[in-house]
Nucleic acid binder design. Structure first.
Lengths: 123, 123
DNA sequence: AAGCGTTATGCAATATTAAGCATATTGAAG
DNA sequence: CTTCAATATGCTTAATATTGCATAACGCTT
């Protein structure tokens, strides 16, 4: 009966799409949170400042950075210990370029997923 | 210097994209594994058979189905207990339609992500 | 009526992951 | 030469997710 089919359709159209993207290399996997962390390092000039801005511990932030650097085989954050302000951190050119590309990638994917979902679930 | 920029570019092009998509509704979230489970139920005619095919326990499979049904407010699997073969399970029309649409959604997203990634990281 | 395979669920046990604590080091500044 | 803020790590603890029993009910079959 038509009624039953309409009922099925109505239930299907009330879903929402979810997605998550990341970059892989050498077993190392990093997504949104990691790149946001890098951004905060750029803004605050330190790992501890970035960690605070992210609401996470310095330990956790430092660990993520080290793991990514090891797996990806590249230095992402140049640090200095001691001295004026106690020390600090800056992004390497590689990290900056990665952030830019990941965000562009992410934006385009988000737009596209929204469109594809609409085509498949909104009718 | 040109050499440094080329070096950065080389490092960036060795990444691979990762992604995961799912459907949301009423706090309930289900992705690839769940829909594969539903497919196996369709093929084997039972939850236990599907669980075995997925390499998971009946308990886990049953739990996932029940959680999805509760959160999504719809019956996905029609079961019968006892009788010939001990019982069994079939997919409801809603579940069948969901599977079809999710796989179509997934395929299109995969294609598109691959293309977007190539545009942003392969140059 | 006993047996079999399946659905149906609570609850205990584990495993995996994340968070937090403790402590050492560094180097400019006062 | 003490203070200070930050980097640098190991190790312990906690939170969460997953897995794995244990047990009951059901209804054909033999």
């Amino acid at each position: 009966m038509i009624v039953a089919l309409d009922d099925v359709r109505e239930k299907l159209t009330s879903f929402a799409p979810g997605y998550k993207i990341w970059l892989e290399k050498g077993g190392g996997v990093q997504g949104d949170g990691f790149f946001k962390l890098l951004e905060h390092i750029e803004q605050t000039g330190s790992i501890s400042g970035a960690a605070a801005a992210m609401g996470m511990s310095y330990r956790a932030a430092w660990g993520k950075i080290k793991a990514a650097e090891k797996n990806w085989g590249m230095i992402l954050v140049a640090t200095r210990v001691g001295g004026e302000a106690g020390g600090g951190a800056r992004l390497t050119p590689e990290a900056g370029e990665l952030i830019r590309r990941f965000y562009q990638f992410r934006e385009e994917v988000g737009r596209e997923i929204k469109a594809i979902f609409a085509r498949n679930f909104k009718d």
